[in-house]
Design a protein around this nucleic acid. Structure first.
Lengths: 238, 238
DNA sequence: CGGCCTTATTGGTCAGACCATTTCCGAGTC
DNA sequence: GACTCGGAAATGGTCTGACCAATAAGGCCG
């Protein structure tokens, strides 16, 4: 009961949420650590199990904890998975009134960094993946198919940079503008020409990365993105 | 019952979550739109109200919906608020094994962009805020106090760039490294000297922004961040 | 006509039951 | 003694139904 008195204005589920989150933020809880059972947590924090479950759901969908049933199993701090973050990010992008221009600037900032890091940190395996995607782009004729592989190419560069963080953010943003790009591409009168231009630029970027020229890679990526947006006629607002 | 049959493998709350999220992603739902009441949603989707509530909590904490009680009130799609995103982001940063180096690269990428945009888009009001923060930094003697204002300065630059997105991300990352910076600063033998250096660099950055020199602002910010990390002896791992 | 009071709506919380999965342990068997 | 199998227990997942709290709307009374 003494715990309940401290809930001044806080919703029941927030008590639980803050309890677990603070454990993460102050370094008490690490990935793999086990949390008390829902029933125990409810008792400890003097809230109902429903409240605990709501908080657990929240943390689950944010990729912060994982649950499974059985004695000794239960709920644990998750090894950080970025895809949950990317999904949330994408939802926010849909609702935000951030102009495409802002989105583009952010994309450029992140992908410049990705490309530069990729040029410094690439290895045989990552280069092979990138070359495979280049080849797939040569085969891709349809707009949708090409768009898919194009997305993959940029994502792969981000991952090559070996920074999960930048990669996840890049994925989220590229994913968020994917539909806009697809629509604009479909409406393009000279799609084959545009496609060839993209292929050419991708080749140049890959070459810069392979040769380890970080500055060139960053600049080429920026030019590549800007040119694509101009051609597609998006990103000029604001 | 016919709806329930489609739940193949999906948890009850996921049905609700996907229902609402798809409304957002396909553009059916816009900020301000009202959702059915929890009881109605439960009936429509053939799940219990508990399941609906779990989904609502998830969306609430992600800043995607807001709720209030009363007839005609209820739950609505929220105007996108970035701070929820920043909080989630911060939690992920704590759990991720991303080295400080990666974090630093990301920070540099974003803040370069922020500074460049700020140089182009500043106005009288934003400049006044930045100057006020400069003054506050002159007054701040203690490490903690200085660190707080320092954080504010960088955040303010991001906001000046008028890109909510970049600003929110910057806030989250700067916040995540705040403690590390504080600790390292406290351990510094020649703190006053370092502090003066930071002041000088902040002054140069502000001058570049005021004069509208985007390239200079971006470069100064990058140098500023890199130099600070080297001096503090963090960010050299990986 | 205006202020107050009742009522209905809607999210917030709780208690308790039951289910599904998984582990664990002991009885029985070879 | 080892192995197998079956049931008990742990634990998250779901549902039901109740009650609370805030709020808005409508009606009653002065």
């Amino acid at each position: 009961m003494s715990q309940a008195e401290e809930r001044e204005g806080l919703h029941a589920y927030e008590v639980v949420l803050k309890h677990v989150e603070s454990g993460i933020l102050d370094g008490t809880n690490h990935p793999g650590d086990q949390l008390p059972t829902e029933r125990d947590l409810a008792t400890q924090l003097a809230v109902s199990r429903s409240a605990v479950r709501e908080a657990m759901r929240v943390l689950q969908t944010q990729g912060l904890i994982t649950s499974s049933t059985g004695p000794g199993r239960g709920t644990r701090i998750a090894p950080s998975r970025g895809d949950a973050l990317a999904r949330i990010f994408q939802l926010h992008l849909m609702l935000s009134d951030a102009g495409t221009a802002d989105l583009t600037e952010t994309r450029i900032a992140l992908e410049r960094s990705s490309a530069a890091l990729a040029a410094q940190r690439h290895n045989a395996r990552s280069l092979r993946k990138l070359r495979a995607l280049m080849a797939a782009m040569d085969d891709a004729e349809g707009v949708d198919e090409f768009n898919d592989v194009d997305t993959e190419f940029h994502v792969q560069i981000a991952r090559t940079g070996q920074s999960e963080l930048v990669a996840d953010l890049t994925v989220a943003i590229r994913q968020a503008v994917r539909e806009a790009i697809r629509t604009a591409s479909t409406a393009l009168p000279n799609w084959p020409e545009h496609r060839n231009q993209l292929r050419r630029e991708h080749g140049e970027i890959l070459a810069a990365i392979e040769s380890g020229d970080a500055v060139a890679a960053a600049n080429l990526v920026e030019q590549h993105i800007r040119r694509a947006y101009v051609t597609l006629g998006i990103g000029s607002e604001r």
